[in-house]
């Protein structure tokens, strides 16, 4: 497969960002390969209503 990209003029005005987080990328420029991953875990079991005990090793919550 032949794939041709023509980059013409790029002029951007004002960029206002609140946050770049959890392995996000904000890039002004060129890149060859970008690989991003983010895992966020907060299952129902992660809301513990009970006595304040340490998290059990191997509990797998």
């Amino acid at each position: 497969m032949n794939y041709t990209v023509i980059n013409r003029d790029v002029h951007v005005g004002d960029i206002h960002l609140i946050a770049v987080t959890s392995s996000a990328v904000f890039l002004i420029g060129d890149a060859d390969v970008i690989n991003l991953a983010s895992a966020f875990d907060t299952p129902p079991e992660s809301l513990i209503i009970g006595p304040f005990v340490p998290l059990i090793p191997g509990g797998g919550l």
Binding site: V20, T21, L36
Partner: peptide, 26 residues
């Protein structure tokens, strides 16, 4: 460019790069 925060393996890059590899586990 105005950015308030970059956090948790975030990347702000002015310029070119070859390979970006980022991973966040929360």
């Amino acid at each position: 460019i105005r950015i308030i925060a970059v956090s948790t393996a975030g990347v702000v890059h002015i310029g070119s790069t070859s390979t970006v590899d980022a991973e966040a586990r929360i």
